[in-house]
Amino acid sequence: MRTTKFIGYMLVTFFLLIPVAVRGEINTIDEIEKTYGDKACMTCHEKIHGEWQKSLHSRSVIHSLGGLRNFIVFGLKRDWKKPVNRENLMRCMHCHAPLLEQASDSLAAEVGELVQSAFDGNEGAKKQLSRLNVNCIVCHNTVAEVEINLRGATKPGVYYGPSGRSSAAHGTEKSKTITSSAFCSRCHWLYTPPDGDTLYCNTLYGSYQDAYKAAGGAAACQDCHMRAKGRGHTFPGAYVPEMVKEGIDIDLQATGVRVQPGKGVPAAIITIGLFNNAGHRIPDG
């Protein structure tokens, strides 16, 4: 019994530490999943994993097929006549599937084909792409720190979190930034790819900074989308009606009058107020 438990524990540890060992070009989605997948995390963090599976972060590629396909077909291929290789694909995938950073150019090209095929309705392609997402290792390791230039990149095999509580299964470190809005901004705002270009894919954080924080707003993204009502790693947004209802208040005022002297035509003056309670503009993403 003791031996079985030990072997099981060692297996979990082995898979969690794999990113230390494999740092190179990866040629298949199978390898990506095997190396950076979420399965090993599930062993100990079952509840959180279950929450994440309900979130759009777990479907960050297949949920955005339209935009990804447009970038590949109309952007890369038509407008710029550029190859669908890792460097170019990462302009989207840095946020939609950061794990592809380790992909070879041939895998990047394959993913590009899968995106087009899935957009056209191919279920098989969709299933393949559903394995690419923003999973545990992305937020808790790959992009866990924002001061990379000052503090250095995150350490392979170390999982960053708000508490930094030690774990027997893997290295841990406390991350201050993981609880801040700035952490979310790296994807929910402007994106600057390595070539220095600027992509305005999502402007949500811009609105948060310029219109909400500037007016005295104090909440962080995590306050509403994680901490409130025990939402945890489900990260609810516009696809959850309750969130949208919380975000917008409505007020209707209407007064009946009679217009056109002599005729007294019935008319109504209607005033509708929509108050945005959220920390960012609505709609946005």
Binding site: S207, Y212, G217, D251, T271, F275, N276, R281, P283
Partner: peptide, 9 residues
């Protein structure tokens, strides 16, 4: 869009 912290009338 609807700006945060404001009423759009």
């Amino acid at each position: 869009s609807l700006p945060p912290g404001k009423t759009t009338e």
